[in-house]
Nucleic acid binder design. Structure first.
Lengths: 300, 300
DNA sequence: ATATATTTATCGCTGTTTTCGATAAGTGCT
DNA sequence: AGCACTTATCGAAAACAGCGATAAATATAT
């Protein structure tokens, strides 16, 4: 049994005539006769009673008709669903990002949802390590984060902006007016640090591990928003990528001198793997919006 | 797009491998590759991403998979529905009968329902004329009635028993003991007649139209049950086919002498037309039961 | 690094199937 | 009886599914 035969069958049932059905199907009447006969042979029963003037459905034919129509309609919906996905009118993508990157996604998400209302967007905020694992297991299609310092196999990173680790203080802090701050300067102030696992902390640790600095670390915390609000409301000092506080009020970021402060904003995806059309679109929109953020970046 | 290709596609998606899918489908891997490629060409998009080790669904493929499965399952249900109907495990038939015949159907209906619980039975009680019209318009598959006196084109009658018009009286009536009654005798008693349209009346009118009889008709009624109960409870006399009162108590039927008293019980169906398997079965059961009724018939 | 094994794609060929046009056969209508 | 219209059948041609062999690619093993 093939879809072609079901289509032929339904047409004959609708027309009540082989010749008329053959006409509207644009095939010869003989072909139609043969195909119906073949279907009947396969089933082992007659589908039509052929009066020389008309054609009637047998009880078996009557049983087949609604089922055949449903089958054809399901087949049609196969096509339309695929076309919808291809035209980005349907489907679903999952975007991963670090908590630091989440605020940057706002405009991209809004633009994407507006442009592709049929596509469902799933956003997962996690640590870089968790994101890389999710990428590997295909839980997400792409991950936005600072480029991981460790190398993950089968994962490729595409850098979208360069950033540097900076010192963050309240805008009323005595350091707020400085043009640049050294690691030595930092020893003089009470610190509050992002918890281990966050990229800023990883970079910071990388910078300090060769040195013999003694910092006055008062607190570690893994929530960047809370970290920033603590800094804003106190004389405490922290280090974060300058982009993280780009939109925040009440705090300022001051370049941190030294080597190894570079942090690269990137999207990460499975090497060689297929990327969904909708994901590509999301990234395209992200990169368009990026120019805005780049401008902000370049202030520092 | 054909069912074959959808089947292949689903198998590849399930196996995650062309070669393995080809094995379980009992076709060569090259054929499978070609068929999937053909499907992809028709759609205008890729369904799988071929890693040399594994095969992954693209977003289009992911969209197709559930739809394809539904389509295949609908196609399978086409087959099973038709098989059910062919094996008389599903379907529906409509039986027409006159009010006179309805009581005779009881046992047939019970046997049929027991034997074919999956088949729905519709029973329509109407006048012979209405039944013939319904037959013509395919509202019913077969009609049970006395063979119509007028000839309907395209309708064939198959006689299942012979019967005669009889005089019906209460078993306490003075005529109850008679062996035979003539038309002349009937003039001496008050009559109650079945209304015009009922077959017994048609026969009776046929017998009297050539004669110049003056009957004392007290009442006409088109409900046979009420007619019989009136006769049972009074000294009134009526005429009906003897079979009609075969099962009734309190009334007796006495042969009516004269010509043209013959009435033939028959099932009527469209000439040349296809008869559903379930209808044939219903009639077979009816005719088996008929032997019982024939025995009753032969009493008179 | 090289070889091996495994996987998918492609090519040429074969048998089958679909399709067509022509024709036969059947039946209602004039 | 003949016409008009239907479906079935036949033979030929085109299209297609399917196969085996082979190429190309790459992960795994050596």
């Amino acid at each position: 049994m093939e879809l072609r035969q079901l289509k032929y069958f339904c047409q004959v049932a609708e027309c009540g005539s082989f010749s008329e059905a053959a006409g509207s199907l644009c095939i010869s009447q003989s072909t139609l006769s043969q195909q119906i006969k073949q279907l009947e042979n396969e089933i082992g029963g007659e589908l039509f009673v052929r009066d020389t003037r008309h054609v009637y459905l047998t009880d078996v034919g009557q049983a087949l008709l609604p089922s055949a129509r449903r089958t054809l309609s399901e087949a049609a919906s196969c096509i339309s669903r695929m076309r919808d996905v291809m035209q980005l009118q349907a489907g679903e993508i999952s975007i991963g990002c670090t908590y630091t990157f989440a605020p940057m996604l706002r405009d991209t998400v809004l633009t994407f949802m507006k442009q592709y209302p049929g596509v469902k967007l799933n956003i997962h905020c996690h640590s870089v390590e968790k994101l890389m694992e999710m990428l590997e297991h295909e839980k997400i299609d792409v991950a936005l984060s600072y480029k991981p310092t460790t190398n993950y196999p089968n994962i490729e990173s595409h850098i979208i902006f360069d950033n540097k680790l900076a010192v963050i203080v309240s805008d009323t802090h005595v350091l707020a007016k400085e043009r640049e701050i050294t690691m030595a300067d930092l020893e003089k102030y009470p610190l509050i640090l992002p918890a281990k696992g966050l990229m800023a902390r990883t970079i910071f640790d990388g910078m300090t591990e060769m040195l013999d600095r003694k910092f006055d670390v008062k607190l570690e915390i893994n929530d960047v928003s809370v970290l920033i609000s603590l800094v804003r409301a106190s004389k405490l000092v922290t280090v974060l990528s300058s982009a993280t506080v780009a939109h925040k009020t009440g705090v300022v970021s001051i370049p941190l001198s030294g080597k190894g402060t570079e942090m690269q904003g990137a999207f990460n995806f499975r090497t060689g793997s297929y990327m969904k059309g909708a994901t590509k679109e999301f990234l395209r929109i992200l990169c368009e919006n990026r120019s805005l953020q780049m401008a902000l970046m370049e202030i520092f």
